[in-house]
Every structure is written in structure tokens, then in C-alpha cells.
Design a protein around this nucleic acid. Structure first.
Length: 585
RNA sequence: GGAUGCGUAGCUCAGUUGGAUAGAGCAACCGCCUUCUAAGCGGUCGGUCACAGGUUCGAGUCCUGUCGCAUCCGCCA
């Protein structure tokens, strides 16, 4: 089943060719949804754009397009309006049969892509020996949703957790632990992860202040990178412990990832340098090996280098990223690579990609995309911190959301004099709490900073997870009350669209595929959120105005089908955001 | 100084390759539960789309400049 927009596009294009010749093949027919029902459901803006080319007035062009258009299966006769807009109004019986087809299909009529791509989504990426904190929230949630959408479309997705398990930080930590807590380097779990973080901070302080310590730490990195056994053992212990901690969070969030940290690429780093050298783009500057960049300058206006090997011989993250890119293209055979990191790294990625292109590591046909996102800020508009100024641990943030949701629920149960089991309450609190955190993040255009507020994300009205979940619950309420089995409404059950509210809901339901295709292409999950919010609103209006169970048979069946399709759409849409639904709440 | 992003209603934000009258939610005020979960629905109020030019049939959207905010800027990742 092809999205309606695509079908109209194809038909208008062939009408253009018929009317004005083969050269119209390259012209985008400029089809878009209308912003006002009086203009129908879709419009083409192409006539206005062709006036110069064809030396005719736009309404004339529009008329010729319509004369050559074969669209009677989809739409009423198109009308010309305003400056030369062509308005398309979908036929009701077309809507009815198409909706029924969707409702019967487990994928709701959405086809998988013809040519699946191998796509890498690089997201989450916490640092070993540190706890996951609020800074990892967005990458984890947005990356997961993007991966889910691409997987649903049938692509082969490799979800990579590029954990920070290598580099200067380990030299620092190992050197410091050797001094103050040597058993942590030889015994598993000798330290609590929280203490490890404390030691890490102290190590960082020493590193910044104490030159001798700095030098020892640097040597420790070199030793580690050279494969020193004692260092490797210590490093592995720290990694294992962190890994288990991360997994707790991933379990709560229901996120699956393949860990492939920076260390994985360690063996390939020298080859990167050799490659850059052989292509004559490597230069030495102040003892460091660099590639000089185009379009990046320092304060004096001189070109900025990308440093790939430090004066002490160590490698840094640019080197790792180049090696990773090379590996992902050559070994993983990825044709699209997506990096979900904060927008502060935009420069870095632009630089790495530039060098990779220059060095022929990155061919033209491979699509690499940095998917940037803004900061998480507190309600005061500043970077989110605890009251005492500490970074907020992700674990704490998530449990607080669950507690908040539970309190809300318990107040409501009390007011409504409902009695529910503890299991029921726990389950709802978790689903609503975690769903709210995810949804709040995903529903905002990711490029901007976003203000984190439990109160807003858990609000029962507005563009929030609870609102969406409630719409779903309402449908389930109908089936419970009426003892309805949605899967057994009869093969001949029909959707009949009569009321205004039914039509509005129906037309919106049909847009799902267009939206998912957009997210697949542009990687903005907030479009999907917006769609689901509008769907919920439209369903609620339908629910208020169109009684289901009390209606006479054919109307009742038709409305039940609409309810079911709405519920299925919400469930699928939310699942692509990583949010499960509830039967009751 | 340079790079990138942002500036839309009192607040939080949408706004699709430029398209017809710029949209939600919150807040404020007014209505609707003997009917499928009122965690809902309807209504009222609220805008020089930062500012100034430009491009064109048409600009919140594209270009130039100005102002403001944020993030980043050679050996951390």
C-alpha cells in the first residue's frame, strides 16, 4: 500500500508529462496536505511554479493538468482555487476500503522498503567508570526511537553503543587508584560504582593540578594502549562493573544495544595514521600529527588542525572516530551511519567527516549523518543539576518519574474510590513515568534545548504520554464494556463514514505512513509524536460525539473498526517511540 | 575573533521540498458527567513570527546585515 501522498504525486507527474511533455518528469508536482478542509485534503502548488517555464497563467496550467489527470479512483474531480492551487478531495468509499485494509493488516498497510539498507545507529555511549547521567538521556531515547523506526521499515540496523572505555581518563583513574585504593585494580567490585565516580573526580582534579601526576597518567594510557597485562586486567574489571550498571538502566528503558567501545578500534589506529600519511595529508605541528582543515580557523584566521596523534604518541577521539568510520564502512558494510550526540559535537563531526572524505575513507555514496540534539535544562533555564549542584544520575531521574506518576495515580484512585492491586499500581506508574520521560524528550524538536519538568511531562492534558495512553485506554474500555473481540467483527464488517468527526479521524489515520516515511528520512521523531497527539485529539472528539455501543448494528460495527484502528495506530506509533501501551489506567 | 544552532501568544513549544486566514498545550475566564474511563470535550482571551533590507506570483520558512541567547573552538571525549 503506497502512501496517498505518493500516489497523488505519481498521478500528477504523469498528467504533467501528458500535458506538457517529457521534460516534466523532473518537476516535483509539489503535493502537500491542505491546512484547511475547505481546500480538500491535498493540494498541488505546481502550477504557480511553472508559469515562467510554460509562459501561461497558473490557472490555465492547472486546468490542463486536471484535463490529463486520471485520479477518479482516489479523488473527486479536482478543483482549481486561488492563484492556481489544485485541490484534491478524497472519495469517501476510497477512504472506507483503504481503512478496512489497514485495520486487517498487522503492519497497518505500511510496506517495508524495497531495498533494505545496512544502517548503523550510534547512540547512548556512556563512559566506563562513570554513572549514566542526565547527559546520556537524550541520545539514548532519541537513538532508540530512530533505530526502531528504521527497523520497522525493514532496514538492517546495527545499534552501536560506542562507550568511552579508552583514553586519557583511564590513565588518570588507574594511576590514582594505584595510589589510594590498589585493590580496586585487582579485585572485582572492590568499589561501589558511586565511589568509583568520586575517585574519578579526584583523579581529574589531580590531573589538572599536578604535572607529575599528569605525566604518570599519560604513561599509563600508553601502557594500556600497548597492551600491558596488569593495566588490561584493571581496565577489564572496571568495564565489567560499569557494564552491569548500564544494563540496569537499559532494562528499565527497554533499550537494546550492542556494545562496541572505543577500545575496539584500538588495533586499527596506527593504520589510520599510516593511511593519512600515505595520502600526503598529514602534517606535523608542535610535535602533534594533524590534518589541516578547510573552513575552520583559529583566532588569527589560520587553518585549524584535526589532531590525530598527540605529541606523546597517544591517539585521541578523532583518530578513533576515523578508524570507526573506516571499520563501519569496510567491515560492517554500512551504507548509512547515524551519530546521535549532542549538538556541541557538530564541529567535531564536520571535521572528522571532512578528513574522512579527503582521505577516501568516506566515499560519496555512503550517507553519514550527525543527528544533533540540545541540552537538557532545569526549570530555571540552566543546565539540569541537583540542588547541591551535582549532575543528576539517570537512575535517580527515572525513579523519581515513576514515584511522581505513582503519586498522581494514587490520588486519582482515592478520588474515584477505586481499589486496585499493588501490581496494577506499580505497573502503571512505571509505564506512565518512563513513557512520560521518553515522550517529553521525543516530542520536542531535538535541535533545541529542552526544559525538563516532571510536572509538564506527566500532565494529563496536552502533548504528553499520559494523554496518548489514555486515548488508547478509552478504546479498550469500550471493548471491555461491550464484550467486543476486535479480531472477530466478521469478514464483511464495513467502515462507513458519515459524521464529520468520523471523517476527520479517518483521514488522519491514513496519514500514518507518510509520517513514518518522513521520520525514516529526516530523523525527527517529534513529527511522529505530533501525529499521535493529533490522532488522540481527533479520537477524543469522535469519542465525545459518536456513541459506539449504543448505535445500531452497522454503525456500531463501523465505529468499532475505527476505534480498533485508532488503538492499533497508537500502539504501533508509541512502540516506535519505545513506549508500551496499557489496557487500563 | 571564528563555527554552529536558536529568537513565533504571558509560559512551554509545533509549524513538512517557500503556499491560501501562523497552530497546540499550560495559565486566565465561561460552559458540559442518569450515556463506552471527565486523565475528556466545547468556548472566550491572547501574535509588528527579534529588527532592517532583499529574492518572487507568494516569506515564520530562502539570502544579506544588525541585535540578543546558547553550545563549541590544537594535543579531554
Amino acid at each position: 500500500m503506497t502512501a496517498i501522498l505518493e500516489q497523488i504525486k505519481t498521478k500528477v507527474t504523469s498528467a504533467l508529462i501528458k500535458a506538457f511533455g517529457e521534460e516534466m518528469k523532473a518537476i516535483d508536482p509539489l503535493i502537500a496536505g491542505t491546512n484547511n478542509p475547505k481546500f480538500g485534503d491535498y493540494q498541488s502548488n505546481v502550477s504557480m511554479s511553472l508559469t515562467k517555464k510554460l509562459k501561461k497563467n497558473p490557472r490555465e496550467i492547472a486546468q490542463e493538468i486536471i484535463n490529463n489527470l486520471d485520479i477518479t479512483d482516489l479523488c473527486e474531480t479536482p478543483e482549481i482555487a486561488g492563484a492556481g492551487f489544485i485541490n484534491f478531495k478524497l472519495k469517501i468509499n476510497y477512504l472506507e476500503t483503504k481503512l478496512r485494509t489497514m485495520q486487517k493488516d498487522s503492519r497497518l498497510g505500511i510496506e517495508k522498503v524495497n531495498q533494505p539498507q545496512k544502517i548503523i545507529v550510534d547512540f547512548s555511549s556512556p563512559n566506563i567508570a562513570k554513572e549514566m547521567h542526565v547527559g546520556h538521556l537524550r541520545s539514548t531515547i532519541i537513538g532508540d526511537s530512530i533505530a526502531r523506526v528504521l527497523e520497522f521499515k525493514g532496514h538492517q540496523v546495527l545499534r552501536l553503543n560506542h562507550v568511552g572505555d579508552w583514553g586519557t581518563q583511564f590513565g588518570m583513574l588507574i594511576t590514582y587508584l594505584k595510589e589510594v585504593y590498589p585493590s580496586a585494580l585487582t579485585t572485582a567490585d572492590a568499589l561501589d560504582i558511586g565511589d568509583l565516580v568520586t575517585f574519578y573526580k579526584q583523579a581529574k582534579q589531580r590531573f589538572d593540578q599536578d604535572e607529575t601526576f599528569k605525566e604518570t597518567a599519560r604513561q599509563a594510557v600508553v601502557k594500556l594502549q600497548a597492551g600491558d597485562e596488569e593495566s588490561l586486567k584493571a581496565w577489564q574489571l572496571l568495564c565489567q562493573q560499569s557494564r552491569r550498571e548500564f544494563q540496569v538502566i537499559y532494562n528499565i528503558l527497554d533499550i537494546h544495544l550492542n556494545e562496541r567501545g572505543e577500545s575496539f578500534y584500538n588495533p586499527f589506529l596506527p593504520a589510520v595514521i599510516a593511511e593519512l600519511e600515505s595520502q600526503n595529508i598529514l602534517q606535523e605541528d608542535d610535535g602533534a600529527k594533524c590534518v589541516f582543515l578547510e573552513g575552520f580557523t583559529n583566532k588569527e584566521g589560520n587553518p585549524l588542525p584535526l589532531i590525530v596523534q598527540k605529541t606523546d604518541g597517544g591517539y585521541n577521539y578523532a583518530t578513533t572516530d576515523l578508524a570507526a568510520l573506516n571499520y563501519r564502512i569496510k567491515e560492517d558494510q554500512a551504507s548509512r551511519i547515524i551519530y546521535v550526540t549532542d549538538s556541541g559535537q557538530s564541529n567535531h563531526f564536520a571535521q572528522v567527516f571532512q578528513v574522512a572524505k579527503k582521505a577516501h575513507i568516506l566515499p560519496e555514496k555512503i550517507e553519514v549523518t550527525h543527528v544533533p540534539f540540545g541540552l537538557v535544562k532545569g526549570e530555571d533555564g540552566k543546565k539540569l543539576k541537583t540542588r547541591s549542584g551535582e549532575t543528576i544520575k539517570l537512575k535517580d531521574l527515572l525513579s523519581e518519574a515513576i514515584i511522581y506518576a505513582q503519586k498522581d495515580l494514587e490520588t486519582r484512585l482515592k478520588n474515584e474510590e477505586r481499589n486496585e492491586t499493588d501490581d496494577f499500581i506499580q505497573n502503571i506508574a512505571k509505564t506512565v513515568g518512563i513513557g512520560a520521560v521518553k515522550y517529553a524528550d521525543l516530542s520536542q524538536n531535538r535541535t533545541t534545548d529542552y526544559i525538563f519538568s516532571y510536572k509538564k511531562m506527566l500532565a494529563l492534558q496536552g502533548n504528553t504520554a499520559p494523554y496518548m495512553l489514555y486515548a488508547y485506554v478509552r478504546v479498550q474500555g469500550i471493548s471491555r464494556k461491550g464484550n467486543i473481540d476486535f479480531e472477530n467483527l466478521g469478514e464483511n464488517a464495513k467502515i462507513i463514514l458519515k459524521e464529520e468527526q468520523e471523517l476527520i479521524l479517518a483521514k488522519h489515520l491514513l496519514q500514518l505512513e507518510e509520517i513514518i516515511n518522513e521520520v525514516e528520512k529526516d530523523l525527527f521523531p517529534n513529527r511522529l509524536c505530533n501525529y499521535l497527539f493529533e490522532l488522540s485529539q481527533k479520537f477524543n472528539i469522535f469519542f465525545e460525539n459518536c456513541p459506539v455501543l449504543q448505535s445500531e448494528d452497522t454503525v456500531k460495527t463501523s465505529r468499532l473498526l475505527l476505534c480498533d484502528l485508532t488503538a492499533k495506530t497508537l500502539k504501533l506509533g508509541l512502540s516506535l517511540l519505545g513506549i508500551p501501551v496499557l489496557e487500563r489506567m
